[in-house]
Measured scan of single mutants.
Amino acid sequence: MATGGRRGAAAAPLLVAVAALLLGAAGHLYPGEVCPGMDIRNNLTRLHELENCSVIEGHLQILLMFKTRPEDFRDLSFPKLIMITDYLLLFRVYGLESLKDLFPNLTVIRGSRLFFNYALVIFEMVHLKELGLYNLMNITRGSVRIEKNNELCYLATIDWSRILDSVEDNYIVLNKDDNEECGDICPGTAKGKTNCPATVINGQFVERCWTHSHCQKVCPTICKSHGCTAEGLCCHSECLGNCSQPDDPTKCVACRNFYLDGRCVETCPPPYYHFQDWRCVNFSFCQDLHHKCKNSRRQGCHQYVIHNNKCIPECPSGYTMNSSNLLCTPCLGPCPKVCHLLEGEKTIDSVTSAQELRGCTVINGSLIINIRGGNNLAAELEANLGLIEEISGYLKIRRSYALVSLSFFRKLRLIRGETLEIGNYSFYALDNQNLRQLWDWSKHNLTITQGKLFFHYNPKLCLSEIHKMEEVSGTKGRQERNDIALKTNGDQASCENELLKFSYIRTSFDKI
């Protein structure tokens, strides 16, 4: 039985969820670079991206490699990797027998973001014989899940209580170790020597080791999670996991709180800001991140802002960003909400898709409305799209047979046209069989910064309504002859009103 693990408890099935942008060198404390989270699957090609990484700022997932063999891993080693800020997950990587050479110096898994409450997941690794993470000293947050690894031993010899604050939620089941077939031998045991430290858990006094050649490092209890030197002297209180010299914040392997210019500090002093819960960055760093993602459509890219001495992905609820200094300031009234469309555009074809934009005031991208039916549609669209004030790209209304009016965009005031449909149009209306009105132009103002209007096959939309939009939106004169079809717009509506004058002759039985 794995020490510190839980057996036999019912657990939810383990679901495996399925960018080499360097964020800056980590400095003297770390020998390499800070790398983003990685999802490495199918083959070993991307694994080489770990070569210079000291910190993975995010998670590391290595999974679904069915053609790899043990010899493929023999020359692979990433000794610079010290810390993973989120979680480490391995799933069905064939041929991998140990992690001792792959990650010989991995010391800390912070667990800032977890995989279903777990910071370390080893699942269905069919050839893994031992973990071998002999320098792993601290899992700051989260638990361990090690399950269905039929060859995995050296679990009962690990004292997880020396690595985690609590072992109650560890789930370590259905491994070879369960069948008591392992016969784990710690260093020196074969020669009758006791080389590794022994600890007591559940009444068992057991030597602690990761492999037959690597003991588990056990520091004096007084050192807590700070770690200790090879001689057993406690590291500085700002260290986490390990250090090369005692009581020196510049000799830590990793930091308990924050890293700044080669030393570990309790908090980031001005003019620095907390970033990702582990390091200090200056304003320029946060500003660069903001600008890199301002026009990016890459998933996970955030326009970072500053709030409460932190550089964070977005302002919290009730705050909006001051564009001059990136500071989050309290909103006066309802907060603006910028919604970034991942692929640059979004099609609204149902109430469900409209709900995804609920509360958005600025759309960074283009909207395509293609709704053919739905219950209580006008009210639903207004509830979900009615706060949109600005669209950076274009607005396209296409084959939306259920629409009679666009009044559900009740606050839309600006279409920038930074991206144009077919390279020309910022407003595009095609084949809307029941569209009769755009907006009530006596109450609604709309500016279209650039781009043209396109109207074709809107049989109940009168040309007068379209011409009014040209005047109000500032697009009059931009359109070419064929942009607004004269014969297919309003051709099934009563669009022309003329005053009919009647004269009559009164007659009676005795007068003409």
Results as ranks from 00 to 15, higher is better:
Asn308Glu: 12
Leu289Ala: 07
Asn202Met: 10
Val34Tyr: 04
Lys129Phe: 14
Gly188Asp: 14
Ala156Pro: 07
Glu97Ala: 09
Val200Asn: 13
Ser143Tyr: 02
Gly227Ala: 09
Thr211Asn: 09
Glu49Asp: 12
Asn325Gly: 15
Phe66Val: 11
Arg145Ala: 12
Arg298Ala: 06
Cys239Thr: 00
Cys219Leu: 02
Arg113Val: 01
Lys292Leu: 15
Lys217Thr: 14
Cys153Pro: 00
Asp86Pro: 00
Val173Ser: 14
Pro336Ala: 11
Pro31Gln: 01
Trp278Ser: 06
Asp177Phe: 12
Leu106Val: 02
Lys129Gln: 14
Pro270Asp: 03
Gly232Asp: 07
Leu96Cys: 14
Val144Glu: 00
Gly37His: 11
Asn150Cys: 08
Pro249Asn: 04
Phe78Gln: 02
Tyr30Met: 01
Tyr272Val: 05
Asn150Tyr: 12
Asp277Ser: 12
Gly132Pro: 00
His214Asn: 14
Ser324His: 15
Arg41Phe: 14
Glu49Gln: 09
Asp165Glu: 14
Glu314Gln: 10
Arg46Cys: 15
Pro330Ile: 14
His214Lys: 01
Ile109Val: 11
Gly142Ser: 02
Tyr87Val: 00
Pro330Leu: 10
Leu128Met: 10
Asn282Ser: 14
Ile62Ser: 00
Thr250Ala: 12
Asp75Lys: 12
Asp72Ser: 03
Gly37Val: 04
Leu44Glu: 07
Gly188Val: 11
Gln204Gly: 15
Asp165Pro: 13
Leu332Gly: 14
Gly58Gln: 00
His59Gln: 09
Leu99Gly: 02
Ile163Trp: 01
Asp86Arg: 03
Arg46Tyr: 09
Asp177Cys: 09
Leu155Glu: 05
Gly111Gln: 00
Pro336Arg: 06
Glu130Arg: 14
Gly32Gln: 10
Met137Lys: 10
Ile158Leu: 11
Leu47Val: 05
Gly188Thr: 05
Cys196Glu: 05
His28Thr: 04
Asn135Ala: 09
Ser324Met: 09
Thr85Met: 09
Trp278Leu: 09
Asp101Gly: 14
Ile84Cys: 02
Leu327Ser: 07
Lys129Ile: 08
Cys328Gly: 01
Gly58Arg: 00
Tyr30Asn: 12
Met83Leu: 13
Leu136Met: 02
Met83Asp: 02
Cys328His: 01
Tyr171Val: 11
Arg162Trp: 14
Pro330Met: 10
Gly142His: 01
Gln287Val: 10
Leu240Ala: 12
Ile185Pro: 09
Ile56Gln: 01
Cys228Pro: 03
Pro246Leu: 04
Ile158Asn: 05
Glu151Arg: 05
Ser213Thr: 07
Leu326Pro: 11
Leu289Arg: 06
Asn42Pro: 03
Gly203Met: 11
Gly227Cys: 10
Glu314Val: 05
Met83Gln: 08
Thr229Leu: 12
Leu81Gly: 00
Cys293Phe: 10
Thr267Phe: 02
Met38Ser: 03
Ile172Ser: 09
Ile222Ala: 09
Met65Gln: 06
Pro79Arg: 06
Cys293Leu: 06
Cys215Asp: 08
Pro270Gln: 09
Cys239Gly: 01
Glu33Cys: 06
Thr68Phe: 11
Thr329Leu: 09
Pro316Tyr: 04
Pro197Met: 12
Asp277Asn: 14
Gln245Met: 14
His302Gln: 14
Thr199His: 12
His302Ile: 10
Tyr304Glu: 03
Asn322Tyr: 06
Asn308Thr: 06
Phe205Met: 13
Gly192Trp: 11
His274Asn: 03
